[in-house]
Computed example of a mutant assay.
Amino acid sequence: MQTALKLGADNIINAVGKDPYEAVYELTKGKGVDIAVEAAGTVETSAQVLALPEKGGKVVYLGIPYNDVNINRFRFERIVRNELSIFGTWNAISGPFPGKEWKTCVHFLEKKILKTTPLIDREIPLAKGPEAFEDAVNGKVTGKVIFCP
C-alpha cells in the first residue's frame, strides 16, 4: 500500500476480508468515485467494484477472474440506479505482434514516463526462485520479483 502512495495515490483502502463500499463512501462523503478500476482479477473484486462509482461513474475491468462472478442485487442495482458505464480492456499482446499496446508500453518505458522501479520488490538469481515463491505465499513480497538468470 505504501507503493501506491509513493506513486501518487491520494488515499488507500485495505479491503482484505471486507467490502470496500463503506470505506469508499466514507472517504468520499457519500459520493463514490469517478472511475473504479478492477485490476486484481478475482471473483470478489469483480463484483465489489460495481458498488464504488458515483452516479454517472465508470467501471473499468482490467483483471479477468477465472470463475463465475455472481453479483448480488445491491451491486447490480448500483449499475442501473447510478447509470454506470462499464468498460472492458485488453492489456495483453495484440496481433500481429508486436501490437499497438506493446509498442506504446515500450515507448513509455524507454522515455522513462512509467515509474516501474517502485513496483519491483527484488531482483534475484533464478536459483532463489523457490525462496521467492515461499515469501510470496507468506505475504513477504510487496511487488514484482525479477528473476535474473
Score class of each variant (00 low, 15 high):
residue 21 Y to W: 14
residue 74 F to S: 13
residue 82 N to D: 13
residue 111 K to G: 09
residue 109 L to A: 11
residue 72 N to P: 14
residue 122 R to P: 00
residue 140 K to G: 04
residue 1 M to A: 09
residue 97 F to E: 04
residue 69 V to I: 15
residue 33 V to P: 02
residue 91 N to I: 10
residue 41 G to C: 08
residue 126 L to A: 06
residue 50 L to S: 01
residue 138 N to L: 12
residue 95 G to M: 10
residue 43 V to D: 02
residue 47 A to F: 04
residue 47 A to W: 03
residue 19 D to A: 13
residue 139 G to M: 10
residue 71 I to P: 07
residue 122 R to H: 04
residue 106 V to N: 11
residue 37 V to C: 06
residue 104 T to V: 07
residue 63 G to S: 07
residue 54 E to K: 12
residue 52 L to M: 03
residue 103 K to D: 10
residue 78 R to P: 06
residue 142 T to H: 05
residue 93 I to V: 14
residue 112 K to E: 15
residue 15 A to V: 05
residue 136 A to C: 05
residue 111 K to S: 14
residue 67 N to F: 11
residue 60 V to M: 07
residue 36 A to L: 08
residue 111 K to C: 13
residue 146 I to N: 05
residue 38 E to G: 03
residue 53 P to N: 12
residue 27 L to M: 15
residue 106 V to I: 15
residue 88 G to N: 04
residue 81 R to T: 08
residue 76 F to S: 10
residue 33 V to S: 02
residue 95 G to Y: 12
residue 64 I to D: 08
residue 106 V to Q: 11
residue 12 I to P: 00
residue 2 Q to A: 10
residue 114 L to K: 03
residue 144 K to W: 10
residue 106 V to H: 07
residue 140 K to I: 05
residue 48 Q to G: 00
residue 89 T to P: 04
residue 69 V to E: 13
residue 6 K to T: 00
residue 30 G to P: 08
residue 146 I to Q: 05
residue 121 D to H: 14
residue 21 Y to P: 02
residue 134 E to F: 07
residue 69 V to L: 15
residue 86 I to C: 11
residue 86 I to V: 15
residue 126 L to H: 01
residue 139 G to P: 01
residue 26 E to R: 15
residue 8 G to Q: 02
residue 40 A to G: 02
residue 51 A to I: 03
residue 95 G to H: 12
residue 81 R to L: 14
residue 73 R to Y: 14
residue 103 K to Q: 14
residue 104 T to F: 09
residue 55 K to Y: 12
residue 10 D to N: 11
residue 122 R to M: 12
residue 127 A to E: 07
residue 61 Y to D: 08
residue 9 A to S: 02
residue 107 H to V: 07
residue 94 S to G: 02
residue 100 K to I: 14
residue 65 P to R: 08
residue 105 C to V: 11
residue 105 C to M: 13
residue 33 V to M: 06
residue 1 M to E: 07
residue 17 G to H: 14
residue 69 V to Y: 14
residue 141 V to P: 01
residue 91 N to L: 14
residue 89 T to S: 15
residue 94 S to C: 00
residue 94 S to E: 07
residue 13 I to Q: 12
residue 46 S to W: 02
residue 16 V to Y: 14
residue 75 R to D: 13
residue 76 F to P: 00
residue 7 L to Y: 03
residue 102 W to D: 04
residue 4 A to L: 12
residue 117 T to F: 09
residue 123 E to G: 01
residue 74 F to Q: 13
residue 130 P to M: 12
residue 11 N to W: 11
residue 107 H to E: 15
residue 13 I to Y: 08
residue 119 L to C: 10
residue 9 A to R: 01
residue 145 V to L: 09
residue 132 A to D: 03
residue 123 E to H: 04
residue 81 R to S: 09
residue 64 I to G: 01
residue 129 G to T: 12
residue 137 V to A: 15
residue 38 E to K: 03
residue 138 N to T: 03
residue 93 I to R: 07
residue 15 A to N: 00
residue 96 P to M: 08
residue 64 I to R: 02
residue 58 K to A: 13
residue 39 A to W: 04
residue 146 I to R: 05
residue 113 I to Q: 11
residue 50 L to A: 02
residue 63 G to L: 09
residue 121 D to R: 02
